[in-house]
Simulated assay, not measured.
Amino acid sequence: MTFTLLHRDILSDGSQIHLARATLTNARPKSLHDHDFYELIWVQNGKVRHHLPDGGNTLTEGDLIFLQPGQAHALQGRGADALVVSLCIHPAIIDGLGQRHPQLQGHLFWSQTRYTRTRRDIRQLAALNHAAVLLERSARNTLEAEAFLLPLCADLTQDNLPNDTPAWLADACSSAQDPQVFRYGAAGMVALTGKAHAHVSRSMRKYLGLTPSDYINQIRMAHAARVLITDAESIAQIAADCGIPNMSHFHKLFRDAYGLTPLQYRQKYQRQVIQPT
Rank of each mutant, 00 (worst) to 15 (best):
P151M: 14
P151D: 15
P151K: 13
L152Q: 08
C153H: 04
A154V: 09
D155K: 11
L156K: 13
T157P: 00
Q158T: 12
Q158K: 06
Q158H: 13
N160E: 10
L161W: 10
P162Q: 06
N163T: 07
N163C: 01
N163W: 02
D164T: 05
D164Y: 03
T165N: 11
A167Q: 15
W168T: 09
L169N: 12
L169M: 14
A170L: 11
A170Y: 08
A172F: 10
C173T: 07
S175L: 14
D178K: 01
D178F: 03
Q180L: 09
V181I: 15
V181Y: 06
F182W: 05
R183C: 13
Y184M: 02
Y184V: 00
G185P: 02
A187H: 04
G188F: 03
V190R: 01
V190G: 00
A191N: 13
A191D: 14
T193Y: 12
G194C: 10
H199I: 13
S201G: 05
S203T: 15
M204Q: 06
M204E: 07
M204F: 11
M204W: 09
K206F: 11
G209S: 11
T211C: 04
T211K: 06
P212R: 05
S213L: 09
I216V: 14
N217S: 07
N217E: 15
Q218Y: 12
Q218M: 12
R220W: 15
M221V: 09
A222D: 14
H223A: 06
H223K: 00
H223F: 15
A225C: 02
A225Y: 05
R226G: 09
R226A: 08
R226M: 02
R226D: 13
